[in-house]
């Protein structure tokens, strides 16, 4: 649904504002890497702009910090609607390694709404390109939450009430209910 909306709203070029609210600059370098001729995100019409007032998309790097949360919020509010926010890296997506220190509030989604996540620390330029292509509807999502367990519990639980005597032997009958 989000993708359909994106295709409808952002059919022309996306202008990208690149906000670092306290990351280590690893993600910044990778975002700039995506703009080089080698990866060349400009072939999708994406252009880096210097002010959030010109931008359609905000690429967030770094967690929301105590000192930058308000500024990040202001930058988000300054962007004209409709707007998209990408959280690039594990800092923006989840708070990063230092998610529980005094200066870090957490992922950027505690301050502004996030539409797409690009995990990685830093994400490879291919991963960022993939996220952009996902938002433009060019590719499909490859990940899905997994829930796995031991297929059958290998050892039956020992229930003494399931033992029954039979001809001098104690027979154990496996429980159904585990």
């Amino acid at each position: 649904m989000l993708q359909n909306l994106c295709q409808k709203m952002f059919r022309r070029s996306l202008w990208v504002y690149h906000a670092n609210s306290g990351g280590c600059n690893g993600c910044d370098i990778e975002v700039l890497n995506v703009l080089t001729p080698y990866y060349d995100v400009e072939r999708f019409g994406i252009k880096l702009v210097a002010s959030p007032r010109h931008a359609d998309v905000m690429l967030c790097q770094g967690p929301a910090m105590r000192s930058t949360a308000q500024a990040l919020r202001r930058a988000y509010e300054a962007m004209p609607s409709p707007k998209l926010v990408f959280a690039v890296g594990s800092c923006a997506g989840g708070g990063g390694l230092w998610y529980d220190t005094y200066s870090v509030l957490g992922p950027v989604e505690t301050v502004i709404p996030v539409h797409y996540y690009i995990p990685g620390c830093p994400p490879r330029p291919e991963a960022i390109l993939y996220g952009v292509a996902l938002a433009l509807g060019l590719v499909d999502k490859q990940v899905a939450a997994t829930r796995i367990g031991h297929a059958a519990f290998p050892v039956p639980r020992y229930h003494p009430e399931d033992l029954r005597p039979e001809g001098g032997l104690a027979i154990y009958q496996r429980q159904e209910k585990i």
Partner: peptide, 10 residues
């Protein structure tokens, strides 16, 4: 590396 998603729970 292609892990981009719109739901972090993915």
């Amino acid at each position: 590396a292609d892990l981009a998603t719109d739901r972090i729970a993915d």
